[in-house]
Design a protein around this nucleic acid. Sequence first.
DNA 1: AATTCGGGGCT
DNA 2: AGCCCAGAATT
Length: 372
Amino acid sequence: MTALAEKLASSAHFLVPPLIVWFRSNRRELPWRIQPSPYRIWVSELMLQQTQVVTVIPYFDRFIARFPNIASLAAADLEDVLKLWEGLGYYSRARRLHEAARQLTEARRELPHTYADLLRLPGVGPYTAAAIASIAFGEPVAVVDGNVARLFSRVWAITTSIDTPVMRRDLRDRLQLLLDGVAPAEFNEAVMELGALVCRPRNPDCDNCPLRDQCIARRDGLTHDLPRRRKRADVPLRRLVAAVVHSEGEVLIAKRAPDAMLGGLWHFPDATSTSNAALETILPGLFYERLGVSVTAGRSYRCIRHAYSHFKIDLTGVDCTLSTTRAVVKCDLAGADSIRWVTVAQCERLPFDRASLRLIDQIKQRHHQNSS
DNA sequence: AATTCGGGGCT
DNA sequence: AGCCCAGAATT
């Protein structure tokens, strides 16, 4: 046994029991913890990637009501799956979940039971495979999500950046030793829950932490300096102009290609604006390139600012009318899968990204004003 | 190892 | 308004 392993094995004795005791009386009754099944745990873990519990709950309930098992999910249209995911973000998760369900159904297999096999599924990486394997099937594999990394970077006062593969592996190896001799599901849920509820990013509730006497960061006054992470590059701003093309009481929408950003979601045909001229002035030029038709620009909508992780957008919608018949508009928009003419009301049945949803709200408001 | 993917919460 | 947070896949 290495020196580190020995040290951890002995510290496990002091760490694990208070952790488990704490968890048993602070465990939240979450939808996926009531009547747990491998499928429900799988869906919840996909939704919980990058996303907090309170955000996920309503999405999870609606998703499970509509797709109660793998077969029903596999049989669904991707568009309907995306509609239920609308607003939750990281839509590739929904695409991969759907794809995995289809693969399993095609092969007439159930969800795999082991970490190694789960890891092969689209959308399942090291964290998710460990979470499903341990929680649904009791396999003793340690989970390291953001909560766990933060918690133990403090408990052990580790100053390596937590957002590196090396650090994640190191933590997983250390926790794997703690896992010896305890129920894997309970231990993993306990560390994630403690990180989420007590060892919070800001305002950690150290006074009520079951590990307060073992926590080195607390002892050394480092809690607020940990965890460390790499500096993030600051994000550029893109100015987008979106054409709300009206024709015969309908508007033109386009579906993004499946592998594009926000793939499979609908939006209003848009273009990046590089000049400082008024959008109404430059829009016809932009859209002649994108749509191959001339449009006349009318009133603009209020600018919508939206933040993604690696850039921000200022999205401005502009009412447009066609200078020719609508039949001329073809689907060779760069990056678009297909186009449709729909009433604003019909938009509610199709999946849109969040910025487009806000534009739809503005269009509805203007409609309402015009008719009253 | 670094970059590409959304969106929400907190201050 | 700005800062912080968080997994998988790709390159």
